[in-house]
Design a protein around this nucleic acid. Structure first.
Lengths: 290, 290
DNA sequence: ACAATTGTGAAAATAATATCACAGACGACA
DNA sequence: TGTCGTCTGTGATATTATTTTCACAATTGT
């Protein structure tokens, strides 16, 4: 509403005129290396600004804090808010709903997950994974578990259009050993394994690994044990205000990968898509209009 | 290994495998609000990560620091270095990647989709839909199409735990007429239909509607023709830099709804979940830890 | 049943903060 | 130039907060 919270930096600048010489000197020193210097011990800050300890103590009180620790706590909070970035402010989207509404709380959490996930992903690894998945000379097996087989299938449905030799395997079914006997060294397994890691998935990964296959793993921040066998692990943060974990972030990664793979050989993808169009036309699966 | 300055974040990630469960939990907590959380008092950090004080003390030593203060000093130094460096501005999600990287472009688009979607959703409608879906006195049919059946199944798998009488129907299979004959007035159809609207789905909706069933529709911004029969339509924006549309936003809505429904009768959900736990224990489907 | 991990509660050691009194420095002003 | 009031630093001390460590019990996976 009224006062969007003022940064400490602002508050200091504002008070600047009301400060005395030594205090101003201190203030400038704080702003110079903001906010790191304010987060150290009081004595260090004093020394860095070439002022005395009591000067620091006196100033933070002048700024309206109960003490130096209070001041630091505020600084830390601000630092946390900065890191969260501008999008996290859901004033941006909270249309009609109050911010306590589950839609907003949930979305907040998901955006947070996305931000954290992206911050910890190595783009080179992502590209390497995409290249593996795109390589038509390798047979591609996509493996999902009890819940994650939905993501696996989503990936499968799209890759199927982009390239040949793609197989969807459900680790919870008992048919998967059949697929494994065909796996050759150099083939690629895309494995989904998130919390409530599944024994079947692990076994499958072990066998695939033993046969010399490459493994690309989609997992969560706690990392499935499969990651020890994986050539590349892509981890998502999946915490939401719910009894279950969120698959949205993983979905985002999957779609990004689809997009990346499709770009790697767009000409061929386009051709395949057009062929598929024709077939769909013939089956009248889709509506032509409205 | 030339040790060009390694960030603490890197160092933690690197050691991640050598860490134990509680330590990993702590590490993730540090990374989650990095670096702010590491700059507070040790006890606060421990509490925030839900681990004990000694665990924190043990871990910082494992990371090679003399003590927590030592660790903090390093964090502050790093923070100072960042601030000094090239004006690190945001809008790139994957910090390490250039903003043209597909990960960043895709995520930008998705965040945009989310924001737009939320802005246009009426929370009252969402709540009404949740209530319909949660009502155990109505049989619930969940319907998906060629691609969207993955979302449908995702919803199905979770609702199955929350309530009885849930059925997953694939509109592309030719078995769905069998389900329809059982449908009673007041039963609820949750229908997914996004671009490349499917004829089968429309027909199914028409029949369901004719039998007096309620329809909750998940669709995209262009709205499936099913919306004319739907009691409640939830529309997502689905544009991304890809040859295909994005399901991520729809997934977000689905998960939000799962969370909302579960909350409506949490006691019963909890009981059902516990029963399920037991069964899983017996089947040894899941690993207990690590 | 065993080994490893983790939490508990407590105590001791350390570090940091908050204050105080006082003296020197400085500028304002007569 | 001298006086005054304000500001500042010094050094010391009391107080509080934080870290560090310990032994032991509980838990968990193997």
């Amino acid at each position: 509403m009224t006062d969007a919270k003022q940064t400490i930096s602002d508050r200091i600048q504002e008070q600047m005129d009301a400060l005395t010489r030594a205090e101003r000197q201190l203030a400038l020193s704080i702003l110079e290396n903001y906010p790191a210097s304010g987060l150290g011990p009081l004595a260090a800050l004093a020394k860095g600004a070439h002022v005395s300890v009591p000067t620091v103590a006196r100033m933070v009180q002048k700024l309206g804090y109960k003490g130096y620790s209070d001041f630091q706590a505020d600084l830390r909070e601000e630092l946390g808010a900065i890191a969260k970035g501008p999008i996290a402010k859901h004033e941006t989207w909270a249309g009609a709903a109050p911010s306590e509404h589950i839609l907003n709380r949930f979305t907040d959490a998901v955006i947070d997950n996305i931000r954290n996930t992206l911050a910890h992903i190595d783009p080179a690894e992502f590209d390497a994974a995409s290249a593996l998945v795109a390589d038509p000379s390798r047979h591609l097996y996509i493996v999902g578990g009890r819940i994650t087989h939905t993501l696996a299938e989503y990936l499968f449905l799209h890759l199927q259009v982009i390239r040949p030799h793609v197989t969807h395997v459900q680790s919870t079914s008992n048919t998967w050993p059949h697929y494994l006997v065909n796996a050759k060294p150099g083939d690629v397994f895309v494995i989904f394994d998130v919390r409530r890691y599944e024994n079947n998935t692990l076994k499958l990964a072990e066998l695939a690994n033993a046969r010399g296959a490459k493994i690309v793993l989609f997992t969560d921040q706690w990392r499935s044990p499969v990651h020890r066998m994986a050539d590349i692990s892509l981890t998502s943060q999946i915490i939401v205000p719910s009894a279950w974990d969120s698959a949205t972030t993983t979905m985002l990664l999957v779609e990004s990968m689809i997009s990346a793979v499709q770009t790697l050989d767009w000409e061929k993808t386009k051709d395949r898509m057009e062929e598929l169009e024709d077939i769909f036309d013939q089956t009248r699966l889709f509506r032509k209009f409205t």
